[in-house]
Nucleic acid binder design. Structure first.
Lengths: 193, 193, 193, 193
DNA sequence: TTTTAACCGAGACGGTACGTCTTGTCTTATA
DNA sequence: TATAAGACAAGACGTACCGTCTCGGTTAAAA
C-alpha cells in the first residue's frame, strides 16, 4: 500500500539553478527584462523544466522571495532597545538603499512583480515587515511598555512600508528629516515619551 | 515672421481617440494586457501615430492620469469639516473600491504602470493624494487648528496612501475597523481632540 | 559456461501493444501525426520500452508492415486466370481505395514513412507488389504462356506500383479507363492475345 | 473609386531571400531537417514574414518548385529524334542522379514534401514529366508516327515517373539494362519499329 | 534461496522547433 | 506632410516531442 510515485524525482539541482538564475537576473536586469528564456539559458535548463514547476516568472520571484534570495541583510531591522531610534535608523537605511540605482531597481521590480502575482505581494508584505522584523519589533515595544498597549501595530507597520513603496513609485528625492517626521507621524501618541 | 508650421497639424481627434482607447482598455483589461497594437486598433489609428507622440504605453497611461480619464469621482475626498471623519470615510471608501474586482484591477494596474514610468508614479502620487485632495485637506485642517501646527502633513499623506498601495499588493481582506485604526495611527498626537 | 542472459525476457505483451498502438494511430492520424509519446501512451507503455527495441517511429511502421498490420485484404491480388483482367481489376480496386480519405491517408503515410526509412521502402516494395502478389502473378502468367517468356516482369510491376504512388502524390482524380490504359501501356506487346 | 490598399507593399527582397534560403537548405539538409526557424535565420528574415505569406514549409517547397529553384537542367529531356533512345537515355540519366547521395536526398525530400502537400505533389507531377518534357515529347513522337496514334501517353509517362519514385523509395541498386527494359515495358507495342 | 541483471511503467531532464504575439521602425497611398 | 494601414526584423511566449536518464517495482536465470 505504497503512496510513492514511480519514476524519477524532481531534480534539486535544476530547482536551485533556476531560482539562482532568477534571482541573479532579477537583480541585474529588473523584473521588466526578466524572461523565461533568459532564465532557462542562464540556469542551463530546458524551458519545460521551468514550466513544469512554476506557472509564471512571477511565481519564480515569489519563490526567490520565500527562500530569501532577493533581500540582503541590509533590510534587517536593528534592535538597540529604543523603538523610535530603531525605526528612524531602519527607515533612513531603506531610504538610502532606494537612492542607489541597484536598490531602486530591486525595489521597483518587486513592486512590479507583486502587481502581477498575489504570492509575491503577500510575501513582500510578510518578509519585508509585517511578518518578520518590523511588526514583531513593534509588538516587543508594546511588551516593554515603550508603546501604548493599544497601539495599532499592524497599521503602523503598513503605514511605514506603504510610505516606502510610495516613495519608490514617486521617485521623489528623500527630504532631510523625512524619516524622523514619518516615524513621528505613525508613532504619534502611541509612544510614551 | 510666422511661428506657424506648414502642413497638417497634429490631429486632435487622433489624440483624443488614442487616450480614450487607452483608458478604456486599461480599465477593462488591465495594464498587463494593454498593448500598443490593441490601442491603435481600438482607436482606429496607425501605430506610428501613437509612437510619434508617446514613447511608451506607460506614457499614455500617464497622460490619461493627467487628464483625469482614469479616476472616477469615487476617489474624491469628502469635506464635512471634521478631518478625522473625512479621513476615515475616504479610506473606507477606497478600501471598498479595492474589494471590487474592477477597482482592484485599476488600482494594481496603476501601480504596475508606475513601476515602469516615473511620470505615472509622480502623477499617481499627486493626483491621488498628496497634490490634490488629501494633503490640501490636511493643510486646511492645520489652518483650522484641527491639527497641530507642526503636524507632518506630507508624511501623513504618504503613510495613508502607502498603506492603501500595500493593501492592494498584499490582497489581504480589509479588517473591520482598519480605516479607523490607520487614521488613529497616522494622526496620533497631531490631532487636537 | 552459459551464454544465457540473466533477468526477465522481452515482454511479448508490450511488443504487441506497441505495434497495435502504432498501427491504430498510423491509420487514424497518419504518419505525420504519429509520435513516440503518443504511441507509448496509447500502448500503456514507457517510452524507454519502445526505444529499447526500435530506433525510430519509422522502424515501428516497418515492423507493422512486416506483420501485415497495415494492409487489409483489399489489396490482395485476384487470380481469375486471365492476367489482363486481374491487373485491371486490382488496379481499379487500389484506385478506388485511393479515393477514400482513409485509404488516401494510409497510402500517403506509407510513402512518407518510406522516404525516411529504407526498411519501410523495401517492405512496401515487397509486400505490396513486387515481392508478394503482383510479380509472382506475372511470373505465373509467363509460365502459363499468357505473357511472352522474355516479358520484363519486374519492370512491369515497378511501373504499375509507381503509377499508383504518383497518383497518390499528385492527388489527381482517377480518369475513367485509366486502369485499362495503364495495363495496356505496361503489358503492351508482352501479352499474347 | 480606388481599389488600392494603403500601406507598404510586399517586399520582393524578402520573398526572394526566403525562397533562396529554402532551396539552399532543402538541397543541403533535406526536407526532414528543413525548419522554419532555420529558413528565417538563413534568409535574415523574421519568422512572421514567412508565416505571413506561406502557411507551411511544404508550401515554400512548392513555390521553389514552381520557380524552378530545385531542379537542375540535368533532369531535362533529350531530343535526338528517336523516342526510344531519348527515353532510355533520360531514364538512365535520372537513375544515375539517384545514385549520387545529393540526388537521392533531393529526390526523396521532394517525395516527402509531396506527401504533406498537394501543391508539391501536383507540381512535381507536372514539372518533372507529365506537364513539361516527358509527355510533350511522347506526344511529339505520336505526331511523328514514332508511336501508335492511340498510345496512352499520359499513362506511359506516369508509369515511367512512378517507377523512378519507387526506385527511390526502395533504394534498390539499379540493375544493368533496367532503363531499357522499363522503356520496353511501357512502350511495348505502342512503338512502331 | 539468494543474488543480480535486465525488463517494465512512469516521467523528469536538456533541447529544438513550433506557430503566435508584440515591439518599434519603415514604407506606401491617401487626404 | 500627417495619417491609417500594415510589412518588416527581432525575439519572447507557452506547447509539443525528441531521445536520454533515473526511479521503484518485477521477473527469472545464475550462483
Amino acid at each position: 500500500m505504497s503512496e510513492h510515485r514511480q519514476g524519477p524525482v524532481r531534480s534539486e539541482a535544476a530547482r536551485v539553478a533556476i531560482l539562482e538564475a532568477t534571482a541573479r537576473l532579477f537583480q541585474i536586469r529588473g523584473y521588466e527584462h526578466l524572461t523565461m528564456e533568459g532564465i532557462a539559458a542562464e540556469a542551463g535548463v530546458g524551458k519545460q523544466t521551468i514550466y513544469r514547476w512554476w506557472p509564471s516568472r512571477a511565481a519564480l520571484v515569489a519563490d526567490c522571495l520565500l527562500e530569501g534570495r532577493l533581500f540582503s541583510e541590509r533590510f534587517n531591522f536593528p534592535n538597540t532597545g529604543d523603538i523610535r531610534t530603531d525605526l528612524v535608523s531602519w527607515l533612513g537605511n531603506v531610504f538610502g538603499i532606494l537612492e542607489e540605482p541597484a536598490g531602486e531597481l530591486l525595489w521597483r521590480s518587486l513592486i512590479a512583480a507583486a502587481t502581477e502575482n498575489e504570492a509575491v505581494g503577500r510575501r513582500l508584505y510578510e518578509s519585508l515587515g509585517i511578518g518578520s522584523s518590523l511588526v514583531p519589533r513593534l509588538r516587543a515595544a508594546v511588551e516593554a511598555s515603550d508603546l501604548r498597549a493599544d497601539a495599532p501595530v499592524e497599521e503602523i507597520g503598513e503605514a511605514l512600508m506603504g510610505a516606502l513603496i510610495l516613495r519608490a513609485l514617486s521617485r521623489l528625492p528623500t527630504q532631510p528629516g523625512s524619516a524622523e517626521r514619518l516615524v513621528d507621524a505613525v508613532l504619534g501618541d502611541s509612544s510614551r515619551r
